[in-house]
């Protein structure tokens, strides 16, 4: 979602986790928190891509509000009192990560991203030691039709980082979504094999923003796939500078 840029005319003061911080209008809670060394858990959010607000791991409590707000999408306001960590939030985040493990077939030991996986790291960080939600064990496919890359739906968490990077940074819009609810899948073009795609530029950006082993380079064995996404902040900053 494109946001209008707000001219930084004034500074706002707010409290995040008992820390008094200042912020510019238009900044999100996530931005301000990370500026002050508070790392709010997140999976779908990636600096440089549009806000998606879907993984719900970054939900925070705002004083005086009953419902929870996703830190990535909520803009700061003067006098806001935010709490990014509490037993309740920790519990919710843990269950959400468990839901991801139960949804598809994540078997870390044989995964090419083992050790370099954001989902795995998040589970460790949140202290997920077992999954108490029954596994859904869906029958999914693997698309290996591309020369260099592979799409493995078993390991996809539908964060749509690949969809966004393809449309917003590469400008190819090859990646898309099909199906709804539990049937939601990442697709290439109009649900064609990746290798047949006429729009894919084989740039590999989708592979490197993917947090798990769903999008990987071919030829990697278990635990060998390391994602390199330095290009994203670089491209974002360079393009912003060129536009301003």
């Amino acid at each position: 979602m494109a946001r209008q840029k707000v001219p930084p005319t004034q500074a706002l003061t707010l409290t995040i986790d008992d820390q008094t911080v200042t912020a510019k209008p238009g900044q999100t809670v996530m931005d301000v928190a990370s500026e002050h060394g508070i790392d709010i858990p997140h999976l779908c959010y990636l600096d440089g891509l549009s806000i998606w607000g879907a993984c719900r791991l970054c939900v925070v409590e705002v004083e005086g509000q009953r419902r929870l707000f996703s830190a990535c999408s909520t803009e700061v306001a003067e006098g806001m009192v935010v709490s990014t960590d509490s037993p309740r939030l920790r519990h919710y985040r843990k269950v959400i990560v468990e839901m991801l493990f139960a949804e598809r077939n994540h078997i870390c030991a044989v995964c090419v991203s083992n050790g370099h996986c954001e989902l795995q790291a998040m589970a460790q960080r949140l202290g997920v030691d077992h999954i108490h939600i029954p596994y859904l064990n869906p029958q999914l496919s693997v698309d290996s039709s591309h020369d260099r890359f592979r799409l493995d739906h078993h390991r996809c968490i539908v964060c749509t980082r690949c969809v966004r990077v393809c449309a917003e940074v590469e400008g190819a819009s090859t990646k898309g979504m099909a199906g709804r609810g539990i049937m939601a899948r990442i697709i290439n073009d109009l649900n064609e094999p990746w290798g047949d795609s006429q729009t894919c530029t084989s740039c590999g950006k989708c592979v490197h923003v993917c947090p798990t082993g769903a999008l990987v380079e071919k030829g990697t064995a278990a635990a060998e796939m390391q994602k390199r996404r330095q290009f994203l902040p670089y491209l974002t900053v360079m393009r912003d500078n060129n536009h301003d």
Binding site: A102, I133, V158, R180, G181, A184
Partner: peptide, 22 residues
Amino acid sequence: CKDESCGKCIPCRVGTSVMLDL
């Protein structure tokens, strides 16, 4: 709800499915 969930956010996508199974 499970059929009509859009699949965007995890709690609704997976939660409705698991709750339906239960």
